[in-house]
Each structure stands twice: as C-alpha cells, then as structure tokens.
Design a protein around this nucleic acid. Structure first.
Length: 431
RNA sequence: GUGGGUAUAGUUCAGUGGUAGAGCGCCAGAUUGUGGCUCUGGAAGUCGUGGGUUCGAACCCCACUACUCACCCCA
C-alpha cells in the first residue's frame, strides 16, 4: 500500500506533464481572447453547498461524494464539480456588484467522485471550465460552446459532435414533469428497474437511460422542447440562430438532461466516438436560478466543464500527426562535462554562467566517466556539450560541440555563455 | 452494486508439470579527452497472496487481493 497510488487517481509524470502544460497554455489563451479571467476556489467546500446546488436527487450527491467530518465537526466535501464553489465565491465576494457580465474560468481544477474507475473515468480528475455570470442572452451560451469546441479542435481532436437541448425553467418544467410522469407510469412494467425508481426522483433522467429496451418505449414520450414556455422557447431558438451564424453543426437531442439539478434552459454536450463507445469531453449549460438559490441576487449564468484527462485520452486515439499541442523541450542547450571529478569544481560555476545567460544548462552530478557523461547528455538531447579539462583551464578556452553536427567551436571561457546564446538563438530562428 | 479479463525482472511480454527467460531500459567495458551504431559483460524476480493436488507447481484446483474493462452515471 505504501507505494501504491490510491484507486482511481493518477500521477502526471513527464513527459505527460508537458502535454498538460501545453494544453493549459492554449486554454488560457482562448479564455483570455474572450475576456474570461481565472478563478481558483478551494478543493473542499461545505457539504451543504453541493446539496443545495448539485441537488440531493442527483447521482453525484447521492452516491459519489467524498464527504467527511473535520475536527471542528463540520461536514466537508471534496468538490465533485466547480460551478458550486464558483457561485459561492461570486456571492461571498460580492462579485455581482462589479461590471456584469463577469466571465470566469478555472483550469486543472481537481474534482473528486467516488465511483469505480475505468477508461476515462477517475476518482480524481481535472477540469477546465468557464462560467459567465449576468448574461441572460443566448449569445453567451453560444460563445461558451464555441470556445469549448475551439479548445478541443486546437488540441487536434476531430469528429466532435455538439448536442444541445433545453430543459426549460421553473415556469414550464413542473407541468412538463407531471405530464412525463403520467406517461412513464403508464409504461412502468416495461421500463428497467432503475428507470422505475427515477420516475419519482427525477423523471427527466429516464430519458437518457442507455438501456435499448427503455429507449424503445420512449419514442413517443412527451419532449421538453415541445413544452417550453415562450421565454425558454425563444432562448432556445436564439441559441440555434447564433450557432448557425457561426457555421457550427449541431443536433438537438431531447435525451440530454444532465446529471446536475441546477440546469435551466440550455444544456449541451460535446462528445466523441471511441472504440469504447461515445465519450463526453465537455458538458455544460445554463443555471439561471442557482445564484439566487444559494442566497445571492437573481443573476443568470451559464458555463461548462471539460475533463482534461478525457481530452488527452481522446487525443491519444487520434493519429499522432493530428496532434497540435506544442510541447516545450526540456533538452539542455549545453551540458558541461568534466574530464575528472576534481574539475567538477570548475564545471559548476561555468554551468551557472550559462544559466545566467538564459540557457538551459546541466552538468554531471553522478560522478560518471566522460564517456558516460556524453551518453547522458545525448539522452537528454543536449544541443551542445563542452568538456572541461586541464588544457581548457590552462588556456581559458573551451570547445562547444554541436551534438547533431559534431561541429566544434572554440571560444574563450569568459565569452562562452554569450557566444552560445547567440548560436542557440540563430539556430532556433532557422527552424 | 453487477459482469468479463489480467497478475512472471524497472518495462513490454514469452514460458501448459521437471535448472525462471527474451526484447527494450539501466550500469560497466571494448576506445585511460568525446555521444548515437555495434559487440561483450553485469545488476535486477518472495513467478500477486494463502491453501490444495503431485515425487515435483509460474503452469492444475480452490479462496482471497489488486489492477483493468464494461454496465450505471458522468468529465
């Protein structure tokens, strides 16, 4: 157990960590272009927050939360999603008193759900997400959808499908729910036992049951989009006209209802087909009543969450030439080898001088032979190697060996960092 | 919670009852001031755990555990 990672968690090791860095840099850039600013909220919140926002009837709250009592006897929960915490911060810090809409994003936010792990499903995963407060117009919904799609295509994913739906608002949904309940109760015998349970807890969830037998029974079920009030109907029409204006393909899927209870009006998912079936990379929607529900003013909002592990998992299913993430190289510009151990004392300040000139520099820390130092430098992908020996010290000159061309350039010890910096920058210009 | 699969070196895996193996990786040498290629050598394994069958078990049987995949749900 001592050296075993907890179930459903993952270490992000190099070079994988570099992929995250590249993806995060791209996400931040996309967010910035659209005027979103970063928010960072705690890893845990009061349990009550999730009960009120995510909803006591949701699967997430009912069976997946990491909840515990702290030493002060407070019920604490590791966040299973980040919208709730963002809304809490928005209210608590009175961000609504500032210019609205306020656009916020979070990145590499850890999320915890106690479920049995499998491909693309972890107990701790990380999300990139965006939330827009104080924008009631459907253009905000469309903006978020387009950013999410842009992010996915910018890592190199293709074949991402956008599915949208509207699940109405407190004005029109209750009547629809009753109608749906009545319809479902008529089919009680024919539905799976999970669905029968859902009829009373949350009848909407029956609609996205994956059981083919259930789906077959639901073909003529009443649809929310046919029961929307005027306001919700217009909003949904507006969303679609914005999407059309942006030339985005989408399908209206009345089966999308989302597992979190706070959604109103727009809900959407971005999915990809994989050998293991359809996988959701991103999901989101509008939550116009949540801010008020939690104790803030009546402010509409819309947002999405994107699973970062999932995005990379989907990317790995694409051929390597499709990948677009640009990863920074860790390879040293220069490796300072020394002929013997006593010269390490000279190699050390030389290495520091290279670093001071802004170059990635390294040296031997393992007391290895010169040959082994070269081997190691080669493995690291060092662009240049210099060997420090008695001769070099005496003459105050060192030789910079280009590891790919084997070309050697003699420079004075003093000028070496400056000269090498010039050679490296010339080289990167040529690329 | 339900059902499948897997478990042998750091890693990927071979090994169907008789001395625990290979590729890759790692370390060293061949070249006592020079890497990639090649060759040679080396380190590294309670064969997941416990029990059973057998003269003998990595291998057959049982149980357990872990991992993994799928269902459910989701990112």
């Amino acid at each position: 157990m001592l050296t075993r990672i907890p179930k459903g968690t993952k270490d992000i090791l190099p070079p994988e960590s570099a992929r995250y860095q590249a993806m995060e840099a791209m996400m931040r850039e996309k967010a910035k272009l659209a005027g979103y600013q970063e928010i960072r909220t705690p890893v845990f919140e009061h349990t009550e927050l999730f009960l009120r926002s995510v909803g006591a009837s949701s699967d997430v709250v009912r069976k997946e939360m990491y909840t515990f009592k702290d030493k002060g006897d407070r019920s604490i929960t590791l966040k299973p999603e980040t919208t709730a915490g963002t809304v809490r911060a928005f209210i608590e810090s009175s961000l609504y008193a500032q210019a609205l809409p306020m656009k916020l994003y979070y990145i590499f936010a850890p999320h915890f759900r106690y479920e049995s792990p499998q491909s693309g499903r972890l107990r701790e995963h990380h999300q990139f997400g965006m939330e827009c407060f104080g924008a009631k117009e459907a253009s905000a919904d469309a903006e978020l959808i387009l950013i999410a799609m842009d992010v996915l295509s910018s890592v190199g994913l293709q074949g991402i499908a956008l599915r949208i739906n509207s699940i109405g608002c407190p004005k029109c949904r209750p009547a629809y729910q009753e109608k749906l309940k009545a319809y479902l109760n008529g089919k009680r015998e024919k539905l799976c036992k999970d669905c029968v349970e859902r009829i009373d807890i949350n009848p909407l969830r029956v609609l996205d049951c994956k059981n083919p037998a259930c789906q077959a029974e639901l073909t003529d079920a009443p649809r929310m989009i046919d029961a929307l009030c005027d306001e919700c109907h217009d909003h949904f029409e507006d969303l679609q006209s914005y999407l059309r204006a942006a030339n985005v393909e989408y399908v209206v899927d009345s089966g999308i209802v989302r597992g979190l209870d706070y959604y109103t009006k727009t809900v959407f998912e971005l999915t990809a087909e994989t050998p293991n079936g359809t996988m959701t990379a991103c999901g989101g929607g509008r939550y116009d009543k949540l801010v008020e529900e939690i104790g803030g003013p009546d402010i509409p909002a819309v947002g999405f969450g994107m699973g970062m592990e999932r995005v990379l998992l989907l990317l790995d299913l694409m051929p390597p030439e499709m990948h677009k993430l640009k990863m920074e190289s860790n390879a040293p510009d220069i490796y300072v080898a020394s002929l013997n151990r006593s010269l390490a004392a000279n190699a050390f300040p030389l290495m520091l001088a290279f670093r001071a000139a802004g170059l990635k520099a390294d040296m031997d820390h393992a007391g290895r032979s010169l040959k082994a130092q070269f081997k190691y430098a080669d493995k690291l992908g060092a662009a240049y190697v210099t060997v420090l020996g008695e001769d070099e010290i005496q003459k105050d000159m060192i030789t910079l060996r280009n590891m790919s061309t084997r070309e050697e350039t003699e420079v004075s010890l003093m000028e070496a960092p400056e000269k090498l910096a010039a050679m490296i920058s010339k080289r990167s210009e040529e690329e």
